[in-house]
Design a protein around this nucleic acid. Structure first.
Length: 482
RNA sequence: GCUCCCAUCGUCUAGCGGCCUAGGACGCCUCCCUUUCAAGGAGGUAGCACGGGUUCGAAUCCCGUUGGGAGUGCCA
């Protein structure tokens, strides 16, 4: 039995939380849950230039939304700065690092035509004195050897030392750079498994070298296992970009995706369960997920499939749960959260929760994301139907519209105003007109709801009541005649 | 340029030498159901990048080619 698993998710707050980070976070979380391990959240906030509080908030709230709760943290990397500097000093004192006063331009000018690109080791043996403008570079061993990354998803990956430059480990300010700070934290937090994006694979050998060096100046810490997850890419097969691609997790929350659906879909990016069942509950994911079965090729984030999953999840909700989940788009004043800047199409004074609840099961069946709900029911709460121009042009201006609406008005005058009777009455006058129900319902629908598509018509009319339906049919008639 | 990674339907994937005339899911198309739209049901479309090996046998193993991607910052 190996020691207890400790994994960490270590985002830097330099942008909103995006789907790639969410996937990395999820895989860490799944692995922790299934091994009974600990999921640590560490915020790598040492880049004061780019880090912002709002991005941090975004990470925390998006993870909470997805239900990826940390067992420890959030720790802030900046809090360990003293520790980082201390170890950097020890590394320097022990000869693993050397001072370098080259500027980027110096280096570029010198190495322009070199076969081996990158820093050329110019200061390695020069004995440059440390000043406030010298960085500290790591002395990559010139031993002709290789560093091997033993990766759970990729196997053994070898990096020849000859191709590794003496990278900067400590800034001239004295603060360690990512590779060092990150390794020190992983050591100090006793992380056993590093699960992160494939983009970090090339920096892993550097961290391994650093790790060995740190072992000699500090306590010896067993090497963690590594797992580099495949990239998430866009249609162009390029790494998802925060600027160009719609990847903000919040935007999916705002559109009305369900966290469980989102998590389920995300889990399928780079991993697949045994068998043909793709819709898996959180518990099933935790149970079935296998890090070793993670794919090594990049995956495209397919919103169409996500949307399908979401529709399935919505339909699977109990009425009660559906009402709760759709609340932010229907009655935002009653919800504890709703999308920023969102307002309902109707005046909240005119909203009728009872009416909505009656319509809800019909809505639930028809939407794939919650934000589609308002347009399905707005006609119920708006003083006049929200007439769509194309619907008016195509349906109300059609040849038969006037006679159909007149027939409807006559037919609905005295019948009991409930769905079944309305259905029957409509069927009856359709027959008299020699038209199919699919034809006659159209102008009635547009008159009553303003749209060509929507929830079942007769249920909607029953809810509205005879007086209002009659009034709207007259509105439709006016439009039809104009 | 250099280092590294990757390669099964349009997309996500199953497949880990014979069960594959390659399975599932999304998408798309057709039909059925039907008061619109959905949902549901029944079908269909479409793939092992290429070339060499190894083997009785390769989508599966090896090599190469091609193609894609990542990294190459005193960012993380």
């Amino acid at each position: 039995m190996s020691d207890a698993v400790r994994v960490r998710f270590a985002p830097s707050p330099t942008g909103y939380f995006h789907v790639g980070s969410a996937r990395t976070s999820l895989f860490n979380w799944l692995y922790a849950r299934q091994t009974g391990g600990t999921f640590v959240l560490r915020i790598e906030d040492t880049d004061a230039e780019r880090g912002r509080q709002e991005w941090l908030d975004s990470i925390i709230s998006a993870m909470a939304w997805l239900g990826l709760t940390a067992d420890e943290g959030p720790y802030r990397q900046s809090e360990a700065e003293g520790r980082h500097r201390d170890l950097a000093e020890k590394l320097y004192a022990a000869g693993f690092l050397y001072a370098c006063d080259c500027s980027r331009d110096d280096i570029d000018a010198r190495t322009k035509g070199n076969a081996t690109p990158g820093y050329d080791g110019h200061c390695r043996e020069r004995g440059v004195a440390r000043t406030e403008s010298t960085a500290l570079r790591f002395k990559v061993p010139h031993d002709g050897g290789t560093t091997i990354v033993d990766d759970q998803v990729r196997g053994q990956v070898a990096f020849p030392h000859a191709a590794m430059e003496d990278f900067v480990a400590v800034k001239s300010s004295g603060a360690p750079l990512f590779a060092l700070a990150n390794a020190i934290d992983d050591r100090d937090m006793a992380i056993t498994d590093i699960i992160r994006g494939e983009d970090l694979l090339p920096t892993t050998p550097k961290q391994l070298l650093l790790w060995e060096a740190l072992d000699t100046v500090d306590v010896v810490v067993p090497l963690p296992r590594f797992a580099h997850l495949p990239m998430l890419v866009n249609e162009q097969r390029k790494k998802l970009s925060k600027r160009k691609d719609p990847v903000a997790v919040e935007s999916y929350r705002d559109q009305g995706f369900l966290p469980d659906a989102f998590v389920n879909y995300l889990a399928l990016l780079g991993w697949a369960p045994k068998g043909d069942q793709e819709m898996l509950s959180r518990a099933e994911l935790v149970e079935q997920f296998r890090l070793a079965d993670v794919q090594s090729s990049p995956a495209f984030f397919d919103v169409a499939k996500l949307t399908h999953f979401n529709g399935e999840y919505i339909r699977a909700l109990s009425l009660e749960d559906f009402l709760a989940a759709v609340l932010p788009w229907i009655e935002p004043d009653k919800a504890d959260w709703s999308p920023e800047g969102y307002v309902t199409p109707w005046d909240l004074q005119h909203f009728d929760a009872g009416r909505f609840a009656e319509m809800a099961p019909l809505v639930q069946e028809r939407i794939a994301v919650m934000s589609e709900a308002p347009s399905m029911v707005d006609f119920l709460f708006l003083p006049d139907p929200p007439f769509e121009e194309t619907a008016v042009d195509k349906v109300l201006k059609s040849e038969k519209a006037v006679s159909i609406l007149e027939a409807a008005l006559a037919a609905y005058r005295e019948i009991p105003f409930e769905a079944a009777a309305l259905h029957e009455a409509t069927l009856a006058f359709s027959e008299e007109l020699g038209l199919k129900l699919r034809i006659t319902q159209a102008p009635v629908r547009v008159s009553v709801t303003g749209r060509q598509v929507g929830p079942p018509l007769f249920e909607a009319m029953a809810l509205l009541g005879r007086d209002e339906v009659v009034r709207r049919l007259h509105l439709g008639l006016e439009l039809a005649r104009s």
